[in-house]
Design a binder for these strands. Sequence first.
RNA 1: CAAGUAGAUCGCCUUAUCGCUCGAAUGCUGAACUUGUUUCAGUUAAACAUAUAGUUUAUUUAAAAGGUACUGAAACAAGUUCAGCACUUGAGAGGAAAGUCCGAACACCAUAGUGCAACAUAGUGGUUAACAACCACCAGUCGUGAGGCUAGGAAAAGUGCAACAGAAAGUAUGUACAGGUCAAGCUGUAGUGAAACCAGGUAAACUCUAUGUGGUGCAAUGUCAUGUAAACCAGUGUCCCGAUAACUAUCGGGAGAGAGCGGCACGUUCGAUGCUGGAGGGUAGGCAGCUAAAGUAUAUUGGUAACAAUAUACUCAGAUAAAUGAUAAGGGCUUUUUAUACUUAUUUUAGGUUAUCCUGAAACAAGUUCAAGAAGUACAGAAUUCGGCUUAUAGAUUUACUUGAAUA
RNA 2: CGGGAUGUGGCGCAGUCCGGUUAGCGUACACGGCUGGGGGUCGUGUGGUCGCAGGUUCAAAUCCUGUCAUCCCGA
Length: 144
Amino acid sequence: MHYLIEELIVIATFVFLYQFMSVSYPKKEKLKSKKLIEQLFSEGQSVSAFPLRLVYMPTSFDDDVVAKTGVSVSKRNFKTAVDRNRIKRLLREVYRLNKAVYFNNITTQYAFMILYIGKDKPTMTQVESRMKLLFEKFSNKVSQ
RNA sequence: CAAGUAGAUCGCCUUAUCGCUCGAAUGCUGAACUUGUUUCAGUUAAACAUAUAGUUUAUUUAAAAGGUACUGAAACAAGUUCAGCACUUGAGAGGAAAGUCCGAACACCAUAGUGCAACAUAGUGGUUAACAACCACCAGUCGUGAGGCUAGGAAAAGUGCAACAGAAAGUAUGUACAGGUCAAGCUGUAGUGAAACCAGGUAAACUCUAUGUGGUGCAAUGUCAUGUAAACCAGUGUCCCGAUAACUAUCGGGAGAGAGCGGCACGUUCGAUGCUGGAGGGUAGGCAGCUAAAGUAUAUUGGUAACAAUAUACUCAGAUAAAUGAUAAGGGCUUUUUAUACUUAUUUUAGGUUAUCCUGAAACAAGUUCAAGAAGUACAGAAUUCGGCUUAUAGAUUUACUUGAAUA
RNA sequence: CGGGAUGUGGCGCAGUCCGGUUAGCGUACACGGCUGGGGGUCGUGUGGUCGCAGGUUCAAAUCCUGUCAUCCCGA
């Protein structure tokens, strides 16, 4: 009985989100251009909510999407590729599930890069709470 | 049963929801190309005329209209290809994907030259596309043993090296004791040291012998798109002969500073729009290469073995700031704690008994069963592709053998 | 994909090419002297099995092989 209710709540949340915007994260929305990334790091601004850091820059591109986003984890802090992959997957997953809430009303196009600057392996819930904080900070800063 | 040796295999699973990459099918939209139909415009030869447009005649037909054929445009239809979207469906990390230590495939680079240098290998035979890998045997060495390890050619071709100790370490001479002589390190033993007189050691010292190695690597290479500067500054540097009517242009021949062939020489190629230095400009995207192969599995045959041959079946990742995942629930497996029951051995104790026997109780140890809780569930992520090697790795399964102990 | 360097007391470095039996130097630390005390200086001392494993050799920080870690460079 208890599980049933919990599952129903989860499903309901997804349905609710679905009405606003897709929760997918296809190739189009990924930041892939080497040129754009270099420009982003040299000219972009940043906000951070430890252990995350968001570098952003308003720009424009041909594809019909709100933002292009990439994630990055330093090799200095995590030696093995398995750990880095795990963290990047978590970051992508959390971005995928939460982007609709924060970026649906933005009109200008942005390039984002989310960096993980911590040194310990995080859990899903930690990443989720910190990223929500990060996006709130970002939208405050932009609206000013 | 305990301890060990050598191999072989596996290395988490299930469900639900939401995603990622690649492929396939269907539908819709768009673009390009091809074909067909319809409509419109044009067409051949000669003469004349003209800035052009054109006019006349001829050709086909009995004659006219028109058609065939060719060119261009538009519309419609069908097909193919490509792109986007929707939906359905299939597949999607390893035993080491890691380190990049060897060997190849493949691609390009004076059509790949010669000698030297450099580097690698080193018992014998075999396997292989190839190898520093693997297999078999011999030898040495370690281990009680199963087995492990070995850069295992040459010191009578030459050059070197050997601290300390010691008389003396190769051109060296003498201590003690004993022997011995006309005399003498002449002889033996002791002593030093890793090594001490018909010497030996060291080649993972130089060296010699045999064999092998051209270089660079998928950021190779090809192609499309975009973009720019054969520009600028400084320095340095070309002459001769012949032909064409000709000091200047062109052609042919000769010399030629310098540069390339990542060490040197020869050789070879370029060579005055050269060469050297300085300060700088541009691109950083797509596609191909890219995954059907020295392929995987099974069986049989040959071989001591590495391995080879044959047959059958199968098709099994292709990303590029880099896919193969996230969350929730459940289950395996391992360790451990608590509790229950049972079995075995030992000790103590009570009773019975001729008894070393039987029965009950308690303590402790080992094992098994079942239940609940806790903890753990490794190392690690394809990047052109293969063959090896090396290193990391929780745990599980299994084969053969060795040593020790006990029982029958 | 390829090339190179380093690893030696707590810290920073010599010694390695060409093997030899005391593994040094500076700094730090401890003790003592000089000073009334501090600082400074002088003297004495502690601390290493030379990243790890194996091999060659009579002998290895040094030679060879493998391996681990750190750092740098090129296309």
